[in-house]
Every structure is written in structure tokens, then in C-alpha cells.
């Protein structure tokens, strides 16, 4: 006999199947769409930096976009780290629990609310001219510019977990260090950081995962060239930006190539987030 409990539980279970279906369906659709390009170029698609849509001589490889994605994201992490980590110390240690910490924390959270395209506009009209003025390159577009804007975009993600972890370092350990004559700097470097290390690392892994998939702001600033960048001031393309840029005019093999890039992006971000999640689990 079906009673209300059984019906409700069945309904909940069926709902849970939906997300399983959506996610596995996504993987299947991406793989299905990527088949033509992998049939044509095989595994070489990942390791080739060619990108030639000329009919008859079509040749597609994702390497320059994979490189662009990784390089911009690494630059972003390097720029983000001192800023976000200092903010975590400011909010979670120096001004812990105060009104000022709350205000700073809220302002950092607000960064997460700014749409990607608005970052792109600001980057284009404010940051890019600055890059030109500083003489890094003549147009101001490129990997470095995109990396800076990405760094700002991922700050809230890097900051929030780190701050919580820093707050969680037991007070009695800090007091023990102070009682031995440590200064606050000593306590931060010798007690807080060693104890919060894995959590801090995890938050930057997750922030890195965020940076990999950002699209609009990067598309507007990276310069959109299909080459492996030779220096950080070169222009380039990321996996996300090449999809956004070239999808409109794509069909046939080129469409398949863009989908294959989407699949690779899905796999890479999945791996990075998976590592981050495992680290969190290992900690708890």
C-alpha cells in the first residue's frame, strides 16, 4: 500500500535522479559533439596549437587555448594570493569580530556579485589604458591584463574560505605562542599559517577552478589571438573565450572543435574542483 511517506520519498528520489541525468547527459552530449573533431585529429587535437578554419585546409588543435587558460589562471592566482591572504588576515585575525572586519568582508563579498561583463568593461576602459600607460604593451590587451581582472574576480572565493580557516585556529595555541614572547607576526607565521595551511591551499585551488572557466571579462581583454602566448604581455585566447568568440560563426568541424574544447574545460575544472573537495574532506 502506498502511504504518504512512501510517495514523498519516491518523489524526492526521482528529483535526485534529475541532477544525475542532467550531469551525465551533459558529459554525453559534449562527448557526442566532440566526436567529429577527435575522429579527424585524434588525441593530437589536445597537443596541437594549429587553428585554421579555412575550408579545405581545416586544422584544429586546442593547445594554445589550454595554455592561455592555464597561464591566465596562474597569473591570477599569483596576483590574487597576497591580496586575498592579507584580507583574510585583516578580517580573520587583526580585526576579527569587529565592525571594520564586517565592512571589509562585505565589500569583498560584493566583488562576487559584479557580473563578468561589468568586470570586462571596467578592465577595458580603466585597466587597459593603465597597462598601455605603463608601457607593458601598445594595445593593453593580453594575457597579463586578463590575469589581473581574473585575480580581482576570484578574490572573494579565495578570501572567504581562508578567512574561516584562519578564524578556526584555536585561540589557546595563539595564546601559548604569545606567552612565549612571540609577536603577532611570529604568531601568524609560526602558528596560524602552519595550522591553517591545508585549508588555505584548498581555498586557492577552488579559486583557481573559478578562474579557469571565466568567460566574458577575459574575452574582452585577452586580445583573442589563436597562438600560444610567448610572454605574459602577449595576446591569446582561453578555452572559454574562444568558445564565446567563435561560436556564432561556427558549424561543422569547427563547431565540433569548440565543443571538444568545452568538454576539455569541463574535465579540467571538474578535476580541479574534485581535488579541492577531496582536500576539504581530508581536513574534516
Amino acid at each position: 500500500m502506498w502511504n504518504s511517506e512512501k510517495i514523498t520519498k519516491t518523489l524526492l528520489f526521482l528529483a535526485s535522479l534529475i541532477i544525475v541525468l542532467i550531469t551525465s547527459g551533459m558529459v554525453l552530449s559534449l562527448m557526442n559533439g566532440a566526436i567529429p573533431v577527435f575522429k579527424e585529429f585524434g588525441i593530437n587535437f589536445i597537443f596541437s596549437a594549429e587553428w585554421n578554419p579555412t575550408e579545405g585546409r581545416e586544422d584544429y588543435g586546442a593547445l594554445s587555448f589550454i595554455a592561455g587558460t592555464l597561464i591566465t589562471s596562474v597569473i591570477a592566482i599569483f596576483i590574487c594570493f597576497p591580496l586575498a591572504f592579507s584580507t583574510s588576515l585583516f578580517v580573520g585575525e587583526y580585526y576579527r569580530g569587529t565592525r571594520l572586519a564586517k565592512i571589509v568582508g562585505t565589500m569583498v563579498d560584493m566583488l562576487a556579485g559584479i557580473p563578468s561583463i561589468v568586470y570586462g568593461l571596467w578592465g577595458f576602459y580603466v585597466l587597459r589604458p593603465l597597462i598601455v600607460d605603463l608601457g607593458f604593451n601598445s594595445q593593453g590587451f593580453g594575457i597579463f591584463t586578463a590575469g589581473i581582472i581574473l585575480a580581482i574576480m576570484i578574490i572573494p572565493y579565495a578570501t572567504s574560505i581562508s578567512t574561516e580557516i584562519i578564524k578556526m585556529v584555536p585561540n589557546n595555541l595563539k595564546e601559548a605562542a604569545y606567552s612565549l614572547g612571540a609577536t603577532r607576526k611570529d604568531v601568524i607565521l609560526s602558528v596560524i599559517i602552519p595550522n591553517a595551511r591545508s585549508g588555505i591551499f584548498t581555498s586557492y585551488i577552488l579559486a583557481f577552478g573559478r578562474a579557469l572557466g571565466e568567460t566574458m571579462a577575459v574575452t574582452m581583454l585577452i586580445g583573442n589571438t589563436n597562438l600560444i602566448p610567448k610572454s605574459i604581455f602577449d595576446t591569446g585566447n582561453t578555452m572559454a573565450s574562444v568558445i564565446a568568440n567563435q561560436f556564432g560563426e561556427a558549424d561543422g568541424l569547427k563547431l565540433s572543435a569548440l565543443i571538444a574544447i568545452g568538454l576539455l574545460l569541463f574535465v579540467i575544472t571538474g578535476l580541479i574542483n574534485g581535488v579541492g573537495k577531496l582536500l576539504i574532506k581530508a581536513r574534516l
Binding site: 535526485s16 541532477i19 544525475v20 542532467i22 550531469t23 551533459m26 552530449s29 559534449l30 559533439g33 577552478g209 579557469l212 572557466g213 571565466e214 568567460t215 572559454a240 568558445i243 564565446a244 561560436f247 569548440l258 565543443i259 568545452g262 574545460l265 569541463f266 575544472t269 571538474g270 580541479i272 574542483n273 574534485g274 573537495k277
Partner: peptide
């Protein structure tokens, strides 16, 4: 299911556009 939810949350929005 929770892991899948996390995976889905990490998927870049441009990929969702493709889908």
C-alpha cells in the same frame, strides 16, 4: 548526488551555454 551537485556547480557557465 552531493558530489554531482558540486561538479555541476563548478561547470563554467559557457559550457552550460553549449549544452
Amino acid at each position: 548526488v552531493r558530489d554531482i551537485t558540486d561538479i555541476l556547480q563548478g561547470v563554467p557557465s559557457i559550457v552550460l551555454g553549449l549544452i
